[in-house]
């Protein structure tokens, strides 16, 4: 549709009053896209061409690929984490299994532990004569007497200490 200068001017006026329809706005943009724009209307040429050119802008071609790559990477990371978790569970069960096997394996409880050293021959410590028996008894009584004396000394020392402390507290 070819429009004259007056009609375009009227349309521009209504456009700036926000009274135009979408179709009329399209007509305006189409008019200013032409080569032969009226000299007096040239001031609006850049204005309407700005909106037309902005409408033709497209996102960079690599953008979608970049987004899909990020999504894929995240999915792989999550998958990796899931696999690691599964592997760690399997490893835990395996280790537990091995532990239990060693604990309960047949003959593994120590019931049949064989002595590694030869047993002590107590017969050589047995008293063989009456004299030897008296000697052993005397030794034992002497040892008992010494220990009993030690006990009396300790008790005497303790009583003295307690007395001193009591006196100090008084």
């Amino acid at each position: 549709m070819k429009m004259n200068k007056k009609e375009i001017e009227a349309l521009i006026h209504r456009y700036f009053e926000a009274e135009t329809s979408l179709e009329e706005e399209q007509l305006l943009r189409a008019y200013f896209q032409r080569d032969e724009v009226d000299e007096q209307l040239k001031i609006y040429e850049g204005y309407f061409n700005y909106f037309r050119s902005q409408g033709e802008i497209k996102a960079p071609e690599h953008l979608a690929g970049k987004v899909l790559q990020t999504i894929q990477k995240e999915a792989n990371n999550k998958k990796g984490i899931r696999v690691l978790r599964l592997l760690s569970r399997v490893a835990a069960v395996f280790i537990l299994g091995i532990g239990l096997w060693f604990l309960y394996k047949p003959g593994g409880t120590g019931e049949e532990i064989k002595p590694t050293a030869s047993s002590i021959d107590w017969s050589k410590y047995e008293v063989k004569s009456e004299e030897e028996a008296i000697k052993v008894m005397q030794m034992a009584l002497r040892k008992t007497s010494t220990e009993l004396k030690k006990g009396t000394n300790i008790a005497t020392t303790e009583i003295h200490t307690t007395k001193e402390r009591w006196a100090f507290l008084k």
Binding site: I57, K58, A59, P60, L63
Partner: peptide, 8 residues
């Protein structure tokens, strides 16, 4: 497919 609109 919305990427162009969003970008603009």
């Amino acid at each position: 497919p919305l990427q162009n609109k969003l970008y603009r």
